[in-house]
Design a protein around this nucleic acid. Structure first.
Lengths: 109, 109
DNA sequence: TTGATTATACAACAACTATTGAAATAACGG
DNA sequence: CCGTTATTTCAATAGTTGTTGTATAATCAA
């Protein structure tokens, strides 16, 4: 992952609505959810949610697929893993011992 | 880490100058750097850098310590590790198998 | 104390972002 | 074909963020 991409992803995640939408869709993997259901669960107007879903999709954090009149959104988990790897590398940059043995056991709990 | 904190951290990292400053200071751990040197390396006006360092410091991603006339900044690596753990947990939420065995070996380069 | 240096605070402005309702687009069911 | 439903686009507005120069505060060296 390059730095402009990381900045873009942080920018997109730096919104309560967008972070909530992404987290919701992670929970709903792999079925995903259609836009109206996301709006209902998060209790935001559809027009506003559409704005945020578009931002997430343009940043590739979500994928979207048409299903008749519905738009089904899904979380792009591999991209999030790339972002985590980027952060981890930045954080340890030149000093791997900084990150070692600090309870970074992401796959448990 | 709670969600408002995560949103705040993403917001602060969603800037090229701030992300560069943080990465630079991670590399310079544990000595840190004084504000003027950071401005020189990143080639941004001191007044602008001060604005961004303040944002990073208020979000606790940096610590600052006075040294005579100088302000010495250091990266708060434990907080970044908390953020990484939060992201990892969100990303795996309810579906740990999503994150397992995907090359997430953060401590090796 | 004086003069130079380091850094932050302030003020002004430009640019960007979020939110909303109304309108448009597209697809379904009858 | 027509009304209904799902979603997005558009336009207007309010609020936020980034950048810069100038001014201020604090420290040091002589």
């Amino acid at each position: 992952m390059d730095h402009p991409t990381a900045v873009l992803l942080f920018d997109v995640l730096a919104s309560g609505v967008r972070l909530d939408a992404f987290r919701l869709l992670v929970k709903k993997e792999p079925e995903g959810m259609v836009a109206g259901d996301i709006a209902a669960v998060l209790d935001v107007p559809p027009t506003n949610l559409s704005f945020h879903l578009k931002a997430l999709t343009q940043a590739r954090l979500l994928t979207v697929e048409q299903e008749g009149r519905f738009q089904r959104y899904r979380a792009n988990i591999p991209l999030m893993l790339d972002l985590i790897a980027y952060l981890t590398e930045e954080c340890c940059s030149g000093r791997p011992e900084q990150c070692a043995n600090r309870g970074l056991t992401p796959n448990l709990k």
